[in-house]
Computed example of a mutant assay.
Amino acid sequence: MLILVTGGAGFIGSHVVTALRGAGHEVRVLDALLPAAHRTPPPIPDGVDWRHADVRDAVAVAEAVQGVDAVCHQAAMVGLGKDCADAPAYVGCNDLGTAVLLAGMAEAGVRRLVLASSMVVYGEGRYECRRHGVVRPGPRTVADLEAGHFEPPCPTCGEPLAPGMVAEDAPLDPRNVYASTKLAQEHLAFAWARAVGGRVAALRYHNVYGPGMPRDTPYAGVASLFRSALERGEAPRVFEDGGQRRDFVHVRDVSGANLAALDGLPGLPEGAMRAYNVGSGEPHTVGEMAAALAEAHGGRTPVVTGEYRLGDVRHITASSCRLRDELGWKPEVAFGEGMAEFATASLRAG
């Protein structure tokens, strides 16, 4: 098949391109090479039909979707950013870009889409109170964060909560601009599928890491920021108390999830969208990840700072059983193995 990969020059997109080529597919890439993600032009893989254009460019998109069998939509502005001034850029890149792409696909008769979504659409993860069962805590307050009270309390009784695993049918509660744009992408894709009889697999990525991550940008993931600090001979700076639980999933496993989703699209009914969590199944705290990375790198011991970012959630880990059970995908890279590789892997300059 001929697959269009938007954002195919980016961190995750480039690994998806490699996986698709390895599986025997023809690949076309559309990427704007935005400065926030690309300070230097990436190498173009052999045999890839390369298109340097923005997904918001309707003419370029109309040309790019001609003759393709499916689209893997990876193009997005990622991360929390620095402040609310980023909001127009997020909405433009993520939501307007997705709308332009979907319009082009509708016109060209392309009916299969794998969408890169994110676990951030859930907001806080699943919590259980001993007295009140499963509850959904509200956003953490500045007063609590300033006082070092990082764990969200039960919204009914104020008692401590036990975090758990989130399933795909959990209520969605995006808590920052980026998260809101990712949820909007899902809604746009579902509306497109219903209107044209398309099929969508929305992959809700967890904290993706691995070779080729961008270094030292406000949009890089925490694993990249820690790795960059170690490379400079500095101690990784861990926010809050380091107890935030996340699922760190290797980029090769994420690219494998894209292949599984692509293969599974024909099994969906026309007009349907199916969401899949993509995680390793091995939750770890941010502090544990920083320590494992520092040990593997042979660098300085991480420093827990107590700093925080408004809009961050405390714990978010999710079950990936649906992706395993329905599409036969499973992660191959264990946490320790992945961190050992990442500790010395090449990062990209941007």
Results as ranks from 00 to 15, higher is better:
residue 62 A to L: 08
residue 289 M to I: 15
residue 164 G to I: 11
residue 262 L to P: 00
residue 333 V to F: 03
residue 138 G to S: 14
residue 311 G to R: 04
residue 75 A to Y: 08
residue 133 G to F: 06
residue 168 E to F: 13
residue 266 P to S: 04
residue 147 A to V: 04
residue 253 D to R: 08
residue 84 C to I: 09
residue 204 R to I: 04
residue 227 R to L: 11
residue 82 K to F: 06
residue 103 A to G: 15
residue 138 G to N: 05
residue 105 M to G: 01
residue 313 V to A: 08
residue 306 G to R: 05
residue 158 G to Q: 12
residue 142 V to F: 13
residue 234 E to H: 12
residue 321 C to T: 13
residue 105 M to S: 07
residue 321 C to I: 07
residue 7 G to S: 04
residue 108 A to I: 10
residue 255 S to T: 00
residue 89 A to I: 02
residue 90 Y to V: 04
residue 349 A to D: 15
residue 291 A to L: 13
residue 325 D to G: 08
residue 133 G to W: 07
residue 286 V to N: 15
residue 339 M to F: 12
residue 51 R to T: 14
residue 210 G to L: 00
residue 219 Y to H: 14
residue 178 Y to R: 03
residue 68 V to L: 12
residue 323 L to Y: 12
residue 53 A to Q: 08
residue 220 A to K: 09
residue 194 R to H: 09
residue 86 D to S: 06
residue 281 G to A: 04
residue 141 T to S: 15
residue 242 G to S: 06
residue 349 A to Q: 10
residue 206 H to M: 14
residue 208 V to K: 06
residue 99 A to I: 02
residue 185 Q to L: 02
residue 126 R to T: 14
residue 47 G to F: 01
residue 271 G to T: 03
residue 55 V to E: 02
residue 219 Y to I: 02
residue 43 P to N: 12
residue 59 V to K: 13
residue 16 V to K: 05
residue 295 E to Q: 14
residue 337 E to T: 11
residue 202 A to R: 01
residue 132 H to N: 11
residue 311 G to Q: 03
residue 266 P to W: 00
residue 73 H to I: 10
residue 203 L to F: 14
residue 290 A to M: 09
residue 323 L to N: 05
residue 140 R to K: 11
residue 6 T to Y: 09
residue 226 F to W: 15
residue 292 A to T: 05
residue 123 G to R: 00
residue 342 F to M: 02
residue 107 E to M: 11
residue 130 R to Y: 00
residue 301 T to F: 03
residue 174 P to Q: 01
residue 292 A to S: 07
residue 252 R to D: 09
